[in-house]
Amino acid sequence: MMDSGWTIPFIVRDQLVNLSEELSQETLDYVQNDYLDSAVQTASDPETGDLYGLPMFTDYPVMHYRKDLVEDAGYDPEGENWATEPMTWQRFSEIAADVWEQSGVEYGFTTQADEYIGLSCCTFSETMTSWGGAYFGDHDNLFGPVGDRPVTVNEEPVHDTIRMMRSFVAGPGAENALDGYQQVTNTDVFEFDEEDARGPFASGDAVFMRNWPYAIEATVGYDDSPITADTYGTMPLPYAVEKGEGNYEGTGGSSHAFNGWHLSVNPHSDRLGDAIKLLEAFASEDVMLTILENVGHLPPDPAVTEQANPDNVGAIGNHLDTLAVAAENTVARPVTTIWSDQSPIIAEEVHAAYRNEKSPERAMSDLEERLLEIENG
């Protein structure tokens, strides 16, 4: 089993079995036609398109919120279809600021903004995408070709992504902030990873939280959390520009970082036939549903999530409609042979701009130069 975030996109062909040559045509058609594009993309050779991993389960974040606090503040999440219809970041900031003020809790919003891999691969990537920006232009370039693709971080949508976060932590009147976007949290989030963000939310001290689906099961009914299944809300992540209206192909609209795991086969196995049969078995709606119900892992076919019986899947059962929308709007991290060198400097420069140690323009100009150096070897 391999992490989709690190291995498959730059596989060495003699280290894994080419599943396009071994799986049945029926299974290959199912994978290509019904699996999440991000899952298939990260399991395929970026040059040939051949499949070297079978997506087994997936993961993608959503916006979590306190339904009770939101409703007490006068909002109607069900009537406004928050669960399936993404709102703009500007509207989100207005609501979060209002509920934060009315509720008196510590945070209006928590997220992961520490200087670590989660910033470059996920929270910044997905928010930048929702603004219409990108690391390397069109998303066809996510996995290369290294050295022969544009570096597009020093552009207005990327600058505005940073400015929005400046507004979120310091208000629209702060230096390098974005007018019209309200303060919804404070600089504490610059030290937060996933559990740091979940802690205040689970204890009742935050209105909204960006996090992965695990947070639902980890919060409802545990750690003396005041949040119950009935008061736990989720919705797709907000967006800044409409889908398809960004600067590059694949950008704009509600965007969610993709993560997950794939099954692959060692070409030196003396039980290759049995291994292929096992993979064929996993490419089944019934098996995916069983894994979802018993383990809670989201399937690579979003239709299975959408069709699951909410009563059989635990705490996430109330959120399957939101998860289905998020699944259809995932963005893969740009993993190549040089991503391990690029990811830390992305986090470093973005974090410096978030903290206002550099202006967005200066930080992204510096990042552009550093990424190009790595791209060009």
Results as ranks from 00 to 15, higher is better:
residue 1 M to F: 05
residue 4 S to W: 05
residue 19 L to N: 01
residue 24 S to A: 14
residue 25 Q to D: 15
residue 25 Q to R: 10
residue 29 D to P: 12
residue 31 V to A: 02
residue 37 D to H: 10
residue 38 S to F: 00
residue 45 D to F: 06
residue 46 P to N: 09
residue 58 T to L: 14
residue 69 L to D: 13
residue 76 D to F: 10
residue 76 D to Q: 11
residue 84 T to Q: 10
residue 85 E to I: 05
residue 95 I to R: 04
residue 118 G to M: 09
residue 136 F to P: 07
residue 142 L to S: 11
residue 144 G to A: 06
residue 151 V to Y: 10
residue 152 T to Q: 04
residue 156 E to W: 02
residue 162 I to E: 06
residue 171 G to M: 08
residue 175 E to Q: 11
residue 177 A to L: 05
residue 179 D to K: 09
residue 180 G to C: 12
residue 193 D to W: 09
residue 194 E to W: 06
residue 199 G to D: 10
residue 204 G to C: 01
residue 209 M to S: 09
residue 211 N to P: 00
residue 216 I to S: 09
residue 223 D to G: 13
residue 224 D to E: 13
residue 227 I to F: 08
residue 230 D to S: 15
residue 232 Y to G: 01
residue 233 G to S: 07
residue 237 L to F: 13
residue 243 K to I: 03
residue 248 Y to P: 00
residue 250 G to L: 01
residue 251 T to N: 01
residue 253 G to V: 00
residue 265 V to E: 02
residue 283 A to M: 06
residue 284 S to V: 01
residue 290 T to W: 14
residue 300 P to E: 05
residue 302 P to G: 05
residue 318 N to R: 14
residue 324 A to V: 03
residue 324 A to E: 06
residue 324 A to Y: 09
residue 330 T to D: 02
residue 335 V to I: 00
residue 336 T to Q: 04
residue 340 S to T: 13
residue 341 D to W: 12
residue 345 I to C: 01
residue 352 A to V: 07
residue 352 A to C: 08
residue 353 A to T: 08
residue 354 Y to T: 00
residue 355 R to Q: 14
residue 361 E to G: 05
residue 363 A to E: 03
residue 366 D to L: 13
residue 367 L to T: 07
residue 374 I to M: 08
